[in-house]
Nucleic acid binder design. Structure first.
Length: 522
RNA sequence: CGGGGCGUAGCUCAGCCUGGCUAGAGCGUCGGUUUUGGGAGCCGAAAGUCGCAGGUUCAAAUCCUGUCGCCCCGACCA
């Protein structure tokens, strides 16, 4: 039906880009690998921020802000960290500009110590925490920051991998390893909660193999999601950094028993990449599909009329329906704010999400239907003369796809909330079922090689725990260990798969403690 | 960073191979008109430094060199 969106089966990558474009989520920028996040895309991010931030606060964290620029020397202090990030750092070497004599400009003064633009903030925060921490009474430190970071990527993709992206990074410091480990796991659970209950994206909680670990971490936990093309996507990570950074930055404290010790730190982050995950999990060939909890526009009311007398009556009726959902006061306030704008936007509840009345004159009803549909609006109310005559309305839901005539009296916040809750639930259940259908146990390496090609998805295989085997599989199949799941059992296409039962690595023939999830990944 | 493809109106593209009138089409936009329950019809109008910079030539969207950006594959990737 949509003429501006390439079907998934024809070209999945193009479909992804088309959906973003049709939904007005983002634009390319003049700078390679960077993007402009448009209002509709940013509103989704704001929804995510709202949900995440509330959970961070509820688990005792506070927000702060650390600098964009980091002295180059800081990065060198933690060996693994510099190894992992050196190649993707943007480096500031000059200050000021001067004419280049050819009508353009060139950098002017070279600065003494080059600055790097943060690719992540462990180092500068480590430096700061060393000053903040004196005694065990100063611990724990539970700080989060909302920020942008820059990583000089070779190949970029809107939302999934851009050179600059928005994220939050939590950085905590603790007295003991146990506390740091508990924090790492607690925030992993927060991420899984938001992914599943807000974004309706089912995720596997697990640990990364040593090869996939964060540069500088003792242990990296992650949530892994499955996209509609069968590729896995790392949706969030939580790291137990041990004492690596506290030793590098000398974050010491006086312990309860009068000794001096290094603190134990953690860090954890999710980024605008989650928006990419959201798009690729739920959207279809008709455009964006958003779970109601983060949909910036929850419902669009589209009036249908021919003549002026009809128009006046239909619009009055449409506003009455709008008021039934959001309240007459809210409509009046919105009209005052919107002024002459053709789309009347009224807040629904306190989340910043909105119900809109599409008053645009230039577009005919079908154009408006497509417009809101492609932007992932969960509910649409079509209101025309027939409905007015019957005191009814055509209620159209994106998930499930349905069109029903509903009486005007039935249009209530309770009805609306129910429709939204149904969509939220269905999206999650559908994604859970899809993921299970893409998940299989495999005990034969030759079979795995062809299966990963023909039926991309998660493959639960035994692994001997060595990096040699992992590297061989990656080399030969492009599949990597996405995670070592925490769960004992996960659902697969052929029923539950026991992950913790010992077995044999199909590649090396060596014994394995349990299964791990392999997949090709974004 | 290596290989391939692309860059011409807001969008999608034709024209380039084989240089030559005033650079075209469809969609969209604007005005008018009839329309309006899943992407309407007719009439008229506006809109492009041909990505950018050099070079060759009497003449460059077209040929050459460089450069920037986008897409795909590879390498790389918390």
């Amino acid at each position: 039906m949509a003429t501006n969106i390439t079907p998934r089966t024809k070209d999945y990558n193009q479909w992804y880009l088309d959906v973003i474009n049709a939904a007005g989520m983002a634009d390319y920028s003049p700078v390679r690998g960077c993007m402009v996040i448009k209002p509709h895309g940013y509103a989704v991010w704001e929804g995510l921020q709202r949900e995440l931030d509330a959970r961070f606060k509820a688990t005792g964290h506070v927000n702060a802000y650390f600098p964009l620029f980091i002295p180059m020397s800081f990065l060198a202090k933690e060996a693994k960290h510099v190894e992992g990030f050196a190649m993707e750092c943007a480096v500031v070497t000059h200050s000021g500009l001067e004419p280049d004599g050819k009508g353009g400009l060139k950098p002017k003064g070279e600065i003494e110590e080059p600055l790097i633009v943060r690719p992540t903030s462990e180092t500068i925060i480590g430096h700061t925490y060393a000053q903040w921490v004196q005694s065990w009474r100063d611990l724990p430190i539970l700080v989060n920051q909302w920020a942008n970071v820059v990583r000089w990527e070779m190949r970029t993709r809107l939302f999934l991998r851009t050179m600059e992206f928005l994220w939050q990074e939590g950085h905590t410091a603790h007295e003991t390893w146990e506390e740091a480990e508990a924090e790492t796991r607690r925030m992993l659970d927060v991420y899984a909660d938001v992914a599943e209950n807000v974004l309706a994206i089912p995720v596997h909680r697990g640990r990364k193999s040593p090869a996939e670990r964060f540069a500088g971490a003792d242990d990296t936990y992650c949530i892994e999601a499955m996209m509609q093309d069968g590729k896995a996507l790392q949706a969030g990570t939580s790291h137990n950094l041990g004492q690596n950074f506290s030793k590098a930055f000398d974050i010491k404290f006086q312990t309860r028993d009068q000794k001096v010790a290094h603190v134990w730190t953690t860090s954890w982050g999710v980024s605008t990449r989650l928006i990419g995950a959201l798009i690729m999990t739920h959207s279809d060939d008709d455009g964006l599909v958003l779970p109601p909890k983060v949909a910036p526009v929850l419902a669009a009311i589209v009036p249908i009329y021919r003549k002026d007398d009809e128009k006046a009556a239909v619009l009055a009726y449409a506003k009455e329906l709008l008021a039934r959902l959001v309240g007459a006061d809210a409509v009046a306030r919105a009209e005052a704010v919107c002024g002459g704008r053709e789309i009347l936007e009224v807040p629904y509840g306190s989340t910043g999400q909105r119900v809109v009345l599409d008053l645009r004159d230039g577009l005919r009803p079908p154009d408006k239907f497509f417009h809101w549909e492609q932007r992932g609006v969960p509910v649409r109310l079509e209101v025309g003369p027939k409905d007015l005559a019957n005191r009814a309305v055509m209620a159209v839901t994106r998930t499930p796809r349905s069109k029903n005539v509903v009486s005007a009296d039935a249009i209530t916040p309770a009805w609306f909330d129910d429709a939204l809750a149904t969509a939220q639930k269905m999206l999650f259940e559908r994604a859970v079922a899809f993921r299970a259908a893409q998940t299989r146990a495999c005990d034969d390496y030759a079979a795995f090689k062809s299966a990963i090609e023909e039926k991309p998805g998660f493959y639960a295989m035994h692994w001997d725990g060595t990096k040699e085997t992992e590297a061989k599989i990656k080399e030969e199949t492009k599949a990597t260990i996405r995670c070592i799941p925490l769960a004992d059992v996960i659902d697969g296409a052929d029923g539950p798969i026991s992950m913790k039962t010992p077995g044999t690595d199909p590649v090396s023939g060596k014994p394995s403690e349990g299964r791990v999830l392999f997949a090709r990944a974004y």
